[in-house]
Design a protein around this nucleic acid. Structure first.
Lengths: 223, 223
DNA sequence: TAGGAGACTACTCCGGTGTATAGCCATTGG
DNA sequence: CCAATGGCTATACACCGGAGTAGTCTCCTA
């Protein structure tokens, strides 16, 4: 990772400090606090970035790009596995926290990230279906969207309700999370929930299924 | 609802205005903005509540209590159905928004609300299992926790990513949400996802299932 | 009818925030 | 050697937030 060499230019140090501060403390962290974390003066933010908003934008882009890189490095790309090993390194943990916070705030970065996850999930699901590992759906894109919304949402909520007291040990929270959801997830995915297909058949018979929800199909989460 | 009579005492008007303001604009809404919404002076907040924090606490309690009342009024108490009809009235919509925001922030109110939902879900699931409607789980409390975390988390995330442009039409967003998730939910619940039980069996054989996650069992979401 | 309590407002105060300006200092290129 | 560019700091500014103070008005009561 890039923090290996410790003496970066002030601009890079500010950017990295901002990412860490945003991840640990939220996006309301003050410029002065960020500058202090980077051990530079507050005015330098303006000098290099012009405004806090611009700094935030650069952080967003950097995080997204680093996440992409980390994901490609670990070649097995199933989202859950990525998330699972993401917080293994310190950088990965910061990235994860930053991303979850972005999603939680509904920022453009969060939206973009979610969209990306959904696309990847759709590809993976299609592959798994064609290999016979996963049962087909009547609406594959809707299922991909749904599954990401559920799993990402659960993670976001879990982190909101159980914030790591020490902003460093996201790893612990992450492990707790998986320890909690592993069994129910596997049960639900292999055995379902309903004992009989009545509800689904009712819904299908009602005709609501034929109507694609609304809006131009394919965007992140409707709207 | 209590806003039926329009001339309430300043205290009550402030409380209700704060609830609406928090729901629509977030908990960072300023005291002055809240006072303006209630058409009173800002100082009155201090006079009646002492501090913004205390006002917030009273709003939390009021919302929780009103939600409870609304839920009991509509006797069919399955969580999803409650959520579905909650935004039917204006008050219900405000309440829902307030609650989702609380959960998203991880505030005590959000935590309490989530906990409450999990307990209710556990009861309902147990009933449904004993009536043969739902397949049993190897760990019912974990499943209840998991299902609420997933569904509530998805809703929170959906609202974060698709905020209603007009803070009033949560109804539209809500309908969009259900239109999107209805089919995938029913499919997943009746047909599952995995074509064969290999993953689950692997997990069970690994022995991880026997170890209840961690910490004193039964709290909201671990920890 | 006088007194007092409480609802309510206008105004002040203080701290924190993002933004802006002016200048220092080192490195560099002519 | 010297000027100029750019990284960087110190300081100031304008603004807005919650909190605090003093005083007015109104209504109830003794």
């Amino acid at each position: 990772m890039s923090t290996a060499q410790e003496d970066l230019t002030g601009r890079a140090r500010l950017r990295d400090a901002a990412i860490e501060a945003f991840a640990a403390q939220g996006f309301d962290e003050s410029l002065r606090a960020i500058a202090a974390r980077a051990e530079v003066s507050a005015g330098l933010v303006r000098h290099h970035f012009g405004s806090k908003e611009a700094l935030r934008a650069e952080c967003d882009a950097t995080v997204l790009e680093r996440y992409r890189r980390l994901k490609e490095e670990s070649l097995q790309a199933e989202p859950k596995q990525v998330f699972n090993q993401l917080p293994g390194s310190r950088e990965g943990g910061v990235l994860l926290l930053y991303i979850l916070r972005s999603a939680r705030e509904g920022s453009p970065a969060g939206r973009q990230f979610t969209e990306q996850l959904i696309e990847e999930a759709l590809v993976l699901l299609d592959q798994a279906v064609s290999r016979g590992l996963i049962v087909p759906s009547r609406d594959e894109p809707a299922r991909a969207r749904f599954l990401i919304l559920q799993s990402l949402g659960a993670l976001v909520l879990y982190f909101a309700l159980n914030p790591p007291q020490d902003p460093e040990d996201f790893t612990t929270v992450m492990q707790d999370y998986y320890a909690h959801v592993a069994l129910p997830t596997l049960e639900l995915f292999t055995e379902g929930l309903f004992a009989d297909p009545g509800y689904l058949n009712e819904y299908l018979a009602s005709g609501a299924a034929g109507i694609p929800p609304a809006g131009p199909a394919g965007d992140t989460v409707s709207r």
